[in-house]
Amino acid sequence: MSDVIFVGFPYVAVALAVLVGIYRYRSDTFSYSSFSSQLLENQKLFWGSALWHYAVVLILLAHFIAFLLPPLWGGIIGGPLRFPLEALGLILSLVGFVALGWLMMRRFSTRRIYVVTTRMDWVVVGLLLFQMLFGFVISLSYRWGGEWFVSSTAPWLWSLVTFNPKPEYVTAFPFLIQLHFFTGFLLIALFPFSRLVHLVAFPIGYLWRPYQRVIWNRAPRPGPGFRTS
């Protein structure tokens, strides 16, 4: 059973995310979007969305650094920064939780938003809300998550990356932590089927695109000195 949840399921989730993600991009390119409802309602959206994204981006960043560079993260979190960083994580997860709750309320209470909300949106936002809550409770009651992640969860994840799965690192973990792992991979699995695809639509090319661009909406008439290429 633990092999299914801690080896099979992660592979299935990542495979789905990549393959269906690529398929969706090739077959339905312009669906790679968050389908923003900003035009329909902006006031409530701003507070919820801005706070939620600051919180979740920073929290995910911490998770990714701890996963990608365990020695670096272990060095940071093992020192005197442990308490402040853990406290900051708790604050951010609570901010994220409150902001997401706020956004859910907005979807419920604003009629024009409610009617453009799909079932998948509710599933994803509900999972994210629970995931945030699990993370908060875990880091509060199973301290210090920032540290034990480095020596148990990171080796488990890397054992999956290197196709040499070692689920024994996490099979004896408390249920809530295992649930957090499961929900995490469930969200990865749902990534290509939901608005979560906007994660990879981040306009990173914006940073080095030309600052001004002339785009013709019909072919310009060739004239002297004009070269069509």
Partner: peptide, 13 residues
Amino acid sequence: PVGMLLGLSILGV
């Protein structure tokens, strides 16, 4: 430090 962390996180929010 559960109480302290909980207090800190609520205060932080």
